[in-house]
Design a protein around this nucleic acid. Structure first.
Length: 321
DNA sequence: CGCGGCACCTGAGAGC
DNA sequence: TGCTCTCAGGTGCCGC
């Protein structure tokens, strides 16, 4: 279940292997994995072949590789660079980007294979593997950012963003993230706090797991109306999200099952340090440390499970927050 | 505008 | 053993 830290682990790993390499050929083994590429497999392949990967860039959970595509030289071709396009990837629930040597047998859920130009000792194939097919690959254009800052986080940040990610807000680990802007927008919206944390247009990179962890750390209820949030509350929950995500990043990403594997094929491991998510029926660590009887409760919210402690993340009795 | 609901998917595990 | 049901969840879209 990749959230921001996992995607960043993949980004860093991938950048090392693919920067500067040319896509020699592309094989789409399951067209469902490129369904967000509206013009189909042939167009997808045509856009990628003979393009060179300039970088690997991330915004929230979206990952893209800006490409340099040259017009064919010779008759009719100028040899000049074409307008900016990028290969976009979203890992969804179970997507993996793996570097493999060609003789390694295909993975069971291999969906797309890119053959890269050879580069001393590096694996020649970039494989997109995805069991549940919530993720996918597609080609998108690059557009200027609305705030003039870099489009995303990469080795050489560009003032452009992949069109399909331009609605995604910066994440709390982004040096250009603005808490003031987040607070202003969240105050103006009438919605529940967890819903706002999961809204990638407000603040990105937070999924169900880290939303619950951040709310627990900030001692806030998931349904807290955002327009009642004090600045200190909002700061606490954003700081908590930032903390939990940088901890996970330092540990190489969270992993609960074998579905998430980073680009080098090794699972991250951070799940053991979760305080709320997945701990239904277990004592709240903060409450037990204080001698209180809090037990983590699981509830359905937004069609998914939410975990919280009824004692330290209470709902008000009188309906006033 | 906001929100609930749902579709998109597969596989693991529970229950019968 | 084998069937059916439930659950996991990021994102986008639809209708109220």
């Amino acid at each position: 279940m990749p959230e921001l830290p996992e995607v960043e682990v993949v980004r860093r790993g991938l950048a090392r292997w693919v920067r500067g390499r040319t896509i020699m050929s592309v094989e789409v083994l399951d067209p469902r994995s490129i369904r967000r590429h509206a013009l189909g497999a042939e167009d997808f392949i045509g856009n990628l072949e003979n393009s060179t990967v300039l970088d690997v860039v991330r915004r929230g959970k979206f990952l893209w590789m800006p490409l340099r595509t040259e017009e064919p030289r010779g008759p009719g071709g100028t040899g000049e660079a074409m307008p900016g396009v990028a290969l976009m990837a979203h890992l969804g629930m179970s997507g993996q980007l793996l570097m493999q040597d060609p003789w390694v047998p295909d993975e069971k859920h291999l969906k797309v294979r890119l053959r890269l130009s050879s580069s001393d000792g590096m694996p020649e194939e970039l494989r997109f593997v995805d069991q549940r097919i919530f993720g996918g690959l597609f080609v998108t254009s690059l557009v200027p950012t609305s705030d003039g800052g870099p489009g995303g986080q990469g080795e050489t940040p560009l003032p452009e963003i992949a069109d399909e990610a331009s609605h995604i807000a910066r994440d709390p680990l982004d040096p250009h993230f603005s808490f003031d802007e987040f607070y202003r927008r969240v105050k103006a919206r009438k919605t529940g706090l967890k819903r706002a944390l999961l809204d990638q247009g407000f603040i990105s990179g937070i999924g169900n797991i880290y939303a619950d962890e951040a709310l627990w750390r900030a001692r806030l209820h998931y349904a807290r109306p955002t327009d009642t949030l004090k600045r200190a509350d909002a700061l606490r929950v954003v700081d908590a999200a930032k903390e939990v995500m940088s901890d996970a990043l330092a540990a190489g990403g969270t992993s609960f099952d074998s579905l998430y594997v980073n680009v080098n094929g090794a699972s991250g491991y951070f799940a053991r340090s979760l305080d709320a998510y997945g701990r239904a029926g277990e004592p709240c660590r903060r409450c037990s440390a204080a001698g209180l009887p809090g037990v983590i409760k699981r509830e359905q919210f937004m069609n998914r499970s939410s975990y919280s402690c009824p004692i330290c993340q209470p709902k008000p009795r009188n309906g006033r927050w």
